[in-house]
Design a protein around this nucleic acid. Structure first.
Lengths: 139, 139
DNA sequence: TCGGCGGGGGATAATTTAATCCCCGGGGGA
DNA sequence: TCCCCCGGGGATTAAATTATCCCCCGCCGA
């Protein structure tokens, strides 16, 4: 595990939560496990864009942070299952909300995230954003 | 703005949301702005652990992602105010939930994130922190 | 005997994010 | 005049996170 040089600001709940969820695949891992995908190989299949190396690392961190637990069944063949701890379960409303929010605003977010990768904001793009935001504001 | 080399996985709402909230101070910025702290200098005072440089950068990203808007009042003296867009407001339940969750589980999370004072890692950790603090000039 | 699957991890490079340093301009008070 | 506040940002370095590569073991079926 990486050893921090700069201490985290812990005085605020936001930073604590951020520390737990901070990992490219951690929200997805929690989501998958909550859905009942428990075995490492199944998790890897559910998240094909991530290498199993990274998934193992992030699962280990989630375990160290007490939100998932790992059970090794010493049968043959060996079986491993991850599951949410109660603490992890209490995190699911947030994960679900993040998932819904992203999906709900997908068209806008995709445009806006892509635009940063190409060039600075053009006037037209800004107009398009304002238009969309207006629409969202009505809801 | 930084130009990505590795494209983000956009097919999932979780990643979209993560992209918007991904920044050490972004949740805090949103929280502060939602609380009515709108002027840059006030925001900086509210988040003393962050340099204004970083805050400006992350505010700019939040703006580009359409969750905050920046208004410049061309008065004298010059006045600048940030505010949440409707899209940003729709994010607040998540921010609040993250804040509450972190606060609610603070005792446990602090222990677990610190990795326990009684572990063997502590020596290295402490060394790393001391190194940093020394560099910064804190006693 | 060989290949493949399931679970795992060390070592290192690359990428991404944050911190640091130090500058700009204008204005207002002493 | 000097100094400090305000809002801002370029350039660079450090830190933190991911990706990549390639290895380990045990077992099972062909």
């Amino acid at each position: 595990m990486y050893i921090r040089k700069i201490p985290l600001p812990l005085h605020c709940g936001l930073h604590l939560t951020r520390e737990v969820l901070n990992g490219k695949w951690k929200p997805n891992l929690l989501f998958a496990i909550a859905e009942g995908i428990k075995r490492p190989s199944d998790i890897q299949k559910a998240l094909p864009d991530a290498t199993k190396r990274v998934l193992n690392l992030q699962l280990k961190e989630l375990e160290e942070h007490g939100v998932v637990s790992k059970k090794v069944y010493h049968e043959l063949p060996l079986r491993v299952e991850y599951s949410l701890t109660p603490l992890g379960e209490s995190l699911m409303p947030i994960i679900d909300a993040m998932n819904c929010w992203g999906d709900a605003h997908r068209p806008f977010l995709e445009r806006v995230i892509m635009q940063g990768e190409s060039e600075s904001v053009t006037a037209e793009r800004k107009a398009a954003c304002v238009y969309y935001l207006d629409k969202v504001g009505v809801e």
